[in-house]
Nucleic acid binder design. Structure first.
Length: 809
DNA sequence: AAGTAAATTTTTTTT
DNA sequence: AAATTTACTT
């Protein structure tokens, strides 16, 4: 294969080493996808391996799709009898289970339903309620995450319960709910995401026959993003490679960012122990980024312990510096990004741009700013198409048709559109279902039967409504069996679920803008069905499975010029220009991870992933203020910013920034470096403040004057005063302000004013090691006073006031 | 029972 | 600030 000559030696070896176990440690941008796809191609074209003997597993549909596409391109012109199976872990499991789940003898049938997270929570909510517990004490959310975490460790509810210490009532309650939850899913013939893996592993463990079947089928197995595999996925791979160990895994421990989903970095770190004859190939040449970007990424990740040492290198030269911007607030940050994008696009429209943030909630301000400047953008994440209520409703009808035991689907649509069924009736139905020990659908059939003569807490009218609903579903079932012969079966049934159920009419009669959008979304669903029918061989079953397992990532348009997404979603992608935004303490690293060293390391890997997405230009931004839950909060720069080498950064901030402060601090330790650096920044700043003729100039000037009136600034240009909140002293106090001032003094008797050695929340302090910081919280009294202080660049620290040796700043 | 107003909660990250 | 849940009215 001549194309192989375009590979570097380790890449080429990774392609040609087809037999046995192989671990490819592929650094960011090292041509990993190219190697995997060529490897598949090589197996087929050179080694004459029948395509159906090849299995490639990925985590996302997007990655699978891309791989499929690339392999097809490489194999163009070749006539193949079959295609290699390129699937996600979950879709692979669905495939296996749809064929063989009945061998498990756990009561599941091939027409099982898949429950997504919100379905799970509904079941859990009902369980918590039926157990007689207060929903507020035991939120469905918490229980769901506990159950999922437990399942991903490979436990069942008995193992979970056995780990419960008898004193812990809450955990004991969760264990009870866990048990009930499992029973109800079983009754509903439903599997959650985790079950897909669990049941498959259990099936393979149980049956030698089935294990053989898949071992014989998949002779060559590839696993992408191996660092993200959890215990279950590991077990699955173990079983599938039992016979021939032609297993190739690709990954990068530095990019392991799914610990929260049970991913075990140990799987990749100890691959050689699991497969003693394994070969290891390192791909360290980076083809993506400039040296500057790689240096920045390396500087960040080297703060982590416990990783495989590797150093990326590139033939590219230094390239642009990393651009830095400190914003006043989130809106200002978004406007900055928008105006820079506009500038880039004026110069060059080819360069794709990504705006990466830690949480989906951050996207909104950017969307607004982009709309204002009429910048076309593409957003990944948030609510996916299949998560929209109307789409879920119609899908619920279809799920119910395929699996009438699906209680969640039934309850979702039984009164949508309204059929005159209220809470009382539905509660009675649920009660009967529990009482008889059957599904809601069966209970409904029993109590609506003419011959049923037991007393019921249901009016005649409601009973008629139930019969009516039953007829609607039965008609859909007939439609499904009738149309299964035609080649438009999916479309027909989907349309029936929209029209014949009265759903479309409900929306039409609403006649609002919103209902019009919903109708459009349903049309979109019909379009998806039409596409599905074109691919033949796949029926309604697969269509629904697809809807259940597809995520928003799948709609990522690789040709879009501007894309907004979370850092997690960006993994595996690359962009000439990247904006990494919201680099603030509590956002990135996220507040939930900040106190746990392990989780903080994962955040750092996440930052590493973010930085290494950039090919040519990287921006890092943060804001001084941000709204959290609708409340304005001060935000401190991320500690990750502090881990970037200062000489790689160019400051684009208006006014004095945290960066210039950090630089002048560095100055004190190293006078020589200092003059070079601070000379540049100080001369730049006032110019920007006075002459900048942009949208936020007024704000910039206001910010500047705020500093001037501050009066406390040192003459050396120490820019720390952004944190200051001393305006009250120069302004007349309002009545409310006076009250607040009084009460805060009373709460903390030795106030900062009366006692120079103690510090109240909001005051600024200086620490010998961490420098200047903002006091966030004060707890305890006397010698036991504990302070929570946020130090820009170092994060939040808890300090004992007595020992911390803090100074007023 | 259904629609509206008020109260409450929400934000990690994803298959 | 927005979305979801609950409480209240008709």
């Amino acid at each position: 294969m001549e194309i192989l000559s375009s590979l570097n030696p380790p890449q080429r070896q990774a392609v040609e080493q087809t037999e046995g176990a192989l671990l490819i440690l592929a650094g960011a941008g090292s041509g990993k996808t190219r190697v995997i796809t060529l490897r598949i191609t090589y197996l087929i074209a050179e080694k004459n391996v029948p395509p159906f003997n090849i299995l490639a597993v990925t985590f996302t549909n997007k990655a699978a799709g891309e791989m499929r596409e690339r392999v097809n391109t490489f194999l163009q012109g070749q006539k193949l009898q079959s295609a290699p199976l390129i699937a996600t872990f979950h879709s692979l499991c669905v495939r296996i289970l749809r064929q063989d789940i009945e061998h498990l003898s756990e009561g599941y049938t091939k027409s099982f339903t898949i429950y997504d997270t919100s379905d799970q929570q509904k079941v859990i909510k009902a369980c918590v309620k039926d157990i007689g517990l207060d929903e507020k004490q035991l939120s469905a959310r918490l229980v769901q995450s506990q159950i999922s975490a437990s399942k991903n460790r490979g436990e069942d509810y008995e193992m979970y319960a056995s780990r419960v210490e008898y004193a812990d009532e809450r955990r004991a309650a969760i264990a009870r709910v866990f048990k009930m939850y499992e029973e109800r899913l079983n009754n509903a013939n439903a599997l959650d995401f985790d079950d897909l893996l669990i049941k498959t592993v259990r099936l393979l463990r149980k049956s030698q026959e089935i294990r053989d079947k898949y071992n014989n089928k998949f002779k060559y197995i590839l696993v992408d993003e191996y660092q993200d595999t959890n215990a279950l996925q590991f077990a699955l791979i173990q079983y599938l490679t039992e016979k021939q160990q032609n297993i190739c895994v690709v990954g990068d421990d530095a990019q392991s960012i799914y610990g929260f989903r049970g991913a075990d970095i140990g799987n990749i770190l100890s691959f050689e122990e699991h497969y003693p004859n394994a070969k290891v190939i390192m791909l360290e040449q980076n083809y993506r980024s400039t040296q500057t970007i790689l240096d920045a990424a390396d500087a960040i990740i080297s703060n982590n312990e416990g990783r495989k040492e590797k150093k990326l290198w590139t033939k590219k030269d230094g390239g642009e510096k990393i651009f830095y911007y400190q914003a006043f607030d989130a809106d200002n940050e978004a406007r900055f990004v928008a105006s820079r994008i506009e500038e880039h696009q004026r110069r060059n429209l080819q360069d794709r741009i990504a705006v990466l943030y830690r949480t989906n909630a951050q996207s909104r301000v950017f969307e607004d700013a982009f709309r204002r400047l009429r910048i076309d953008y593409n957003i990944v994440g948030g609510f996916s198409f299949y998560e929209r209520a109307e789409v879920k409703d119609v899908i619920a009808y279809l799920k119910l048709v395929l699996n009438p035991f699906d209680d969640i689907a039934l309850l979702r649509v039984i009164n949508t559109p309204t059929r005159g069924l209220g809470k009382t009736t539905l509660d009675e139905l649920s009660f009967r279902a529990r009482d008889f020990g059957v599904s809601h659908w069966e209970a409904l059939a029993i109590i609506t039967d003419e011959k049923y003569d037991q007393p019921l807490n249901i009016t005649a009218r409601a009973l008629e409504a139930l019969r009516n609903f039953k007829k609607v579903i039965e008609k859909l079932q007939v439609k499904l069996s009738e149309s299964s012969q035609t080649n438009k079966s999916v479309t027909e049934v989907v349309m029936a679920a929209i029209e014949d159920t009265g759903y479309a009419n409900m929306l039409r009669s609403e006649n609002s803008d919103e209902s019009a959008t919903r109708l459009e979304n349903l049309e979109e669903l019909v379009n998806a069905a039409v596409d599905y029918d074109k691919q033949e061989e796949y029926g309604l079953r697969d269509f629904i499975d697809h809807a259940a397992l597809s995520s928003d990532m799948d709609k990522f348009d690789r040709n879009a010029t501007v894309t907004l997404m979370t850092v997690h979603s960006a993994k595996g992608l690359e962009f000439p220009i990247v904006f990494l935004v919201g680099l603030e303490d509590g956002i990135f690293p996220h507040s939930r991870s900040i106190n746990e060293p392990k989780e903080l390391e994962e955040e750092r890997r996440l930052a590493y992933v973010a930085i290494t997405r950039a090919e040519k230009i990287l921006y890092v931004t943060h804001s001084m203020r941000r709204r959290v839950y609708g409340e304005e909060m001060t935000a401190e720069p991320s500690q990750f910013l502090n881990e970037l080498p200062l000489d790689l950064i160019q400051d684009l901030s208006r006014g004095s920034s945290w960066l210039s402060f950090a630089r002048s601090s560095a100055t004190q330790n190293n006078k020589h470096a200092a003059t070079a650096l601070s000379g540049e920044t100080i001369s730049e700043k006032p110019k920007n403040l006075y002459t900048g003729k942009t949208y936020n100039n007024a704000e910039a000037i206001a910010e500047f004057f705020k500093k001037k009136t501050d009066g406390q600034q040192s003459s050396t240009g120490n820019q720390s005063s952004i944190f200051a909140s001393r305006e009250e002293e120069s302004k007349p106090l309002s009545g409310m302000d006076k009250l607040r001032a009084l009460s805060s003094q009373n709460k903390n008797p030795p106030s900062a004013i009366s006692n120079p050695n103690s510090f109240v929340p909001g005051s600024h302090v200086r620490h010998a090691k961490y420098g200047k910081g903002l006091v966030l919280r004060r707890e305890g009294t006397g010698d036991n006073v504990k302070l929570t202080v946020s130090f820009p660049g170092f994060g939040q620290k808890k300090l004992i006031e007595k020992f911390a040796n803090l100074e007023k700043a």
